[in-house]
Design a protein around this nucleic acid. Structure first.
Lengths: 218, 218
DNA sequence: ATAAAAATCACTGTTTTCGGTGATTTATCT
DNA sequence: AGATAAATCACCGAAAACAGTGATTTTTAT
């Protein structure tokens, strides 16, 4: 890619503060982005004469769901890069975003260096996902393109049940007569496969997906 | 209590190995227990001419649920001390045992010093619960004798929801604009109130009790 | 009004989780 | 027979959870 090429970006967010902040960050740290346009609604965004090289979208817009907007942009300008910028860090929310084939996900809570890094990576043709979103991405990837299913092995299910019962890794190792390292590996695979960030998330996901049953009433 | 008094105990377990092990431990470390009787079924236990000072019962017996046996013993000999000895460390199971007003709970996985300690404490008129059971005990205590309900405050529910969504304490603190210390306190209260040992257990309990809903399908 | 509960924050130490990486041995499937 | 997945174990470091204690301020209820 030509190092002297300049890029255009469209920032879409219904909060002016966010727009100004992003604009400022980009202006000061990313001189290769020469055109910075903004929009505060989905409609306004679609009216801007594109294509832009990069779209950075909030998912919560007054007139339109940000993900609908993603569809529109993808339809018109398939080569554009799209970064989603959201305050929602909920896992199911991230999964939704992932399915729309975006190039990057940012959370509004992050600091400006991350924004710069994300833009650099996306412009370079790579993807950027916030740490929290990375796990979810991997999980979905396995399910769709990888061809592999994310079904759990018998042993993993064993470990999962013990985890959901509040056991620590060392306790599980004892009860299943395994090394702690082994249980930790299973645990890691569980987190990966279910796209969970920690055991709380793991249990919630597993129960919600019906992988493990609710606890019997006592 | 007279230091020279000797005590009697009835050990009930359907595994002879366990009986022999317990017997051995008691003989070698607890000279104050002079009468050690054993039974391998609930029926056999009830046929032994009591009362014994202490009953140590397995909950899994071939002919009878150990908790039924507790009832029988309590009815006949209200002053006897009862210790439950079980391999089941599941929380809901512990809760069940707790409700039967026993003096101690041991898990078969523990080492012999704990057995001795438990017997000493129970003989002295105190209670003994394995570490894992202690939390559950505190929770139930609040619900019944304490008069206090274990209902969660609004803030605690807030924090719980975030936890169940896989958020870390620091993330929750950020999102709710609280100090990390505060969130940790809420978390601790949640664990106490729901009788959970860690977040995995917390989420499982909260979902099972219907305190928080399952995650929306995506 | 005043007692009780809720909400807030602080400090400290230990244990556990989480993430990355890599490797070997069985099963299993094609 | 060879590829693939499952199951096993190891080592490391950083981050988070967990446990115990204590304390102040605000709400809420009696």
């Amino acid at each position: 890619m030509d190092c002297n090429k300049t890029f255009s970006i469209l920032l879409v967010d219904d909060h002016d503060l966010v727009l100004q902040g992003l604009k400022r960050i980009i202006e000061s740290s990313l001189p290769e982005i020469s055109v910075i346009s903004t929009a505060m609604t989905g409609r306004e965004a679609l009216e801007k004469s594109g294509p832009f090289d990069v779209y950075m979208l909030d998912v919560e817009l007054p007139d339109m769901n940000g993900l609908e907007l993603v569809q529109h942009i993808r339809d018109r300008y398939p080569d554009s890069r799209i970064i989603i910028n959201t305050i929602h860090e909920e896992i199911w929310f991230i999964k939704n975003i992932m399915r729309h084939n975006v190039n990057g996900i940012l959370f509004k809570s992050i600091d400006s260096e991350k924004v710069v890094e994300a833009l650099r990576r996306v412009i370079a043709g790579n993807t950027y996902y916030c740490r929290n979103a990375e796990r979810v991405r991997r999980m979905l990837h396995r399910n769709t393109s990888g061809g592999r299913s994310c079904s759990l092995s018998a042993r993993e299910l064993d470990v999962l049940k013990h985890i959901s019962d509040g056991k620590s890794t060392s306790e599980i190792a004892d009860e299943l007569c395994l090394s702690i390292n082994t249980v930790e590996t299973h645990r890691r695979h569980l987190l990966d496969k279910l796209g969970a960030r920690n055991v709380a998330d793991l249990v919630m996901t597993a129960v919600s997906e019906g992988i493990i049953p609710l606890r019997k009433k006592d």
